[in-house]
Design a protein around this nucleic acid. Sequence first.
DNA 1: AATAAATAGTTGACTTGGTCAAGTTTTGCG
DNA 2: CGCAAAACTTGACCAAGTCAACTATTTATT
Lengths: 174, 174
Amino acid sequence: MPADRSALVRDLRCFNRFYTGLIGLLDETLTHSGFTLTEARVLFELGGRTGRITATPGRKAGFLARAFQIDFGPAASDIAGELQLDPAYVTRILRKFSAVGLTEMRTDPGALRGRMLSLTIRGQAALAALQSAADRDLTRLTVDLGDEEAAELSDILARARHLLGGAPASERRG
Amino acid sequence: MPADRSALVRDLRCFNRFYTGLIGLLDETLTHSGFTLTEARVLFELGGRTGRITATPGRKAGFLARAFQIDFGPAASDIAGELQLDPAYVTRILRKFSAVGLTEMRTDPGALRGRMLSLTIRGQAALAALQSAADRDLTRLTVDLGDEEAAELSDILARARHLLGGAPASERRG
DNA sequence: AATAAATAGTTGACTTGGTCAAGTTTTGCG
DNA sequence: CGCAAAACTTGACCAAGTCAACTATTTATT
């Protein structure tokens, strides 16, 4: 018989309410950047993934990429999968990005198959701007904290994430 | 000169990503209830507020309510204000609720001015159902935790909320 | 009590983020 | 090659949310 978790549930719900509001606040600045929340997320994903060396087996990797275990940037489907988005929607977003010159597709026929996405310089700049805006918000949110409190908060968050099943204890933060 | 918070910001962002996903998961069940997220929130607000004795001065309280310091349930504008919603949208939601018999307006001319909202029995039932669904989710989320871990999580969350400026240290949890 | 000023509520028209279903293209492989 | 599967695209569509203009209700003023 499972233990009584009603107190925890209550606290969780309370935290939820609080954090939802917080996220809303944070998102606000993001939205003011001219990107949709989803677009922003796609941009992040695009940026965070370009040029990794972590080819995921089973995915749509060509012989070259597979042979060398290299990921030449995410395919649209990767993003859709990761972010739980409708492929159709992703297509449109990517199209929009491409239209304003934020992304480009590797179509070099000699080197690889097409369809791998990467940020252009402009795209990287946009991402950086977005990131720094987000950073500014988060910094302001925690500016009143002392060093110890800051450290405590970091620990707490990691711990909470872990307890909530978000990360196997060992996973790197970031 | 403010201390370097980059590590904290990174961790915060990481937690953010995680928790956004979590909320999304939780919201899912809520959405499957036939209510919009916003509708659900309105319902919660409606339920949490009915029959308080905390008339807010400056609000649209009639002479009776003001005289007796009684709040006969929120007005539409209260909800709109609290939840940061467009009045027009609130109107529609309330209308919908009213149409399916979840809410009623006190229009007893003898007793009070109209326009005060309250849940019908059915409304209360719907709210209860919603709440228990949410509870179930949260419970399942934490079912693997031992008693100590559960207690720890409660503490952690409260502490995090406090550190993030969510609650003046003394505020009770719940 | 009459009326002006303010606030609350309502309406319709509209925008837009996002979904669905039905194609078309690419890719992987025998 | 040629076929099956997966990825991508398209257009039609939907519903949540916004805007602006209007009506009704309350409160204040005299």
